Simulated scan of single mutants.
Amino acid sequence: MKDKQANTDSLVDNKNEQVKNILFFGNSLTAGYGLEDPGSESFPALIQVKLDSLGLGYKAVNAGLSGETTAGGKGRIGSLLKNKMDIFVLELGANDGLRGVPVSQTEENLQSIIDTVKLRYPEAKLVLLGMQVPPDMGGKYARDFNAVFPRIAAKNDMLLVPSLLNKVAGIPHLNLRDGVHPTANGQKILAENVWDELKTIL
């Protein structure tokens, strides 16, 4: 699957135009951790089905990596910008929140990732997938963390999905036994959450 995605810059659509790439850059939520077939059940894969059904010339590239933090993403992003990219979808921060990483550090890392993308592809459209942490992480920490995503989106003129896990987080039958990662049905809802916003810029 990854090898196939790595060559998307050579694909052409039915109008003989180069396929436009959408890079989904995230952690296990994007990678489809725990799914039987992440290549078809993760939310980027489900969005690809929507793109194809509408005859849109886009290729969804899944660059999710389980366990990824914003610090890890900051170090990894450069290697993923070799292929042409038209839309950048950023889904990172949840692991920072679960580990109690200082909010200022998370925000700094997210901004660094975005700056790297802007420098390489200034014309690319940017999308940020909002994350939230539960109140049991501490009321102030949760409030500060949750506020990072709308602030980053506004600062960088990014399209914002307010909460990627909307209608999924905390619902047992939509999550695996770990209570954190969505099931295949949960991923379908994630795909809808993203698609509702993403479709406005395609």
Score class of each variant (00 low, 15 high):
3 D>R: 15
4 K>A: 14
4 K>W: 15
5 Q>H: 13
8 T>V: 15
11 L>Y: 14
11 L>K: 14
11 L>A: 07
13 D>M: 03
19 V>E: 05
24 F>I: 02
26 G>H: 06
26 G>N: 07
32 G>I: 09
35 L>F: 07
37 D>T: 14
37 D>L: 14
38 P>G: 10
39 G>S: 13
43 F>I: 11
45 A>Q: 09
46 L>F: 08
47 I>F: 00
48 Q>R: 07
60 A>K: 08
61 V>W: 04
62 N>Q: 09
66 S>L: 10
71 A>Q: 12
72 G>I: 03
72 G>L: 03
73 G>K: 00
82 K>P: 11
84 K>R: 13
90 L>Y: 00
97 G>L: 01
98 L>R: 10
101 V>I: 14
105 Q>H: 06
108 E>C: 10
109 N>W: 05
110 L>V: 00
110 L>M: 07
110 L>E: 00
111 Q>Y: 01
112 S>C: 11
112 S>E: 08
113 I>D: 01
114 I>K: 02
114 I>H: 03
114 I>W: 02
120 R>P: 04
121 Y>F: 13
122 P>I: 10
129 L>P: 06
130 G>S: 02
131 M>H: 08
134 P>K: 00
134 P>D: 00
134 P>G: 03
135 P>F: 11
136 D>C: 07
137 M>K: 15
138 G>P: 00
138 G>L: 03
142 A>F: 01
143 R>H: 12
144 D>P: 01
144 D>G: 05
146 N>W: 01
150 P>T: 02
153 A>E: 01
156 N>G: 05
159 L>P: 00
162 P>Y: 00
164 L>H: 08
165 L>N: 05
168 V>D: 06
169 A>M: 12
169 A>H: 10
169 A>E: 13
172 P>F: 07
172 P>T: 05
173 H>M: 13
173 H>G: 07
174 L>C: 08
178 D>S: 00
179 G>K: 11
179 G>F: 10
180 V>R: 12
180 V>Y: 11
182 P>L: 05
189 I>R: 02
190 L>R: 07
190 L>K: 04
191 A>G: 05
192 E>A: 10
192 E>R: 09
194 V>Y: 06
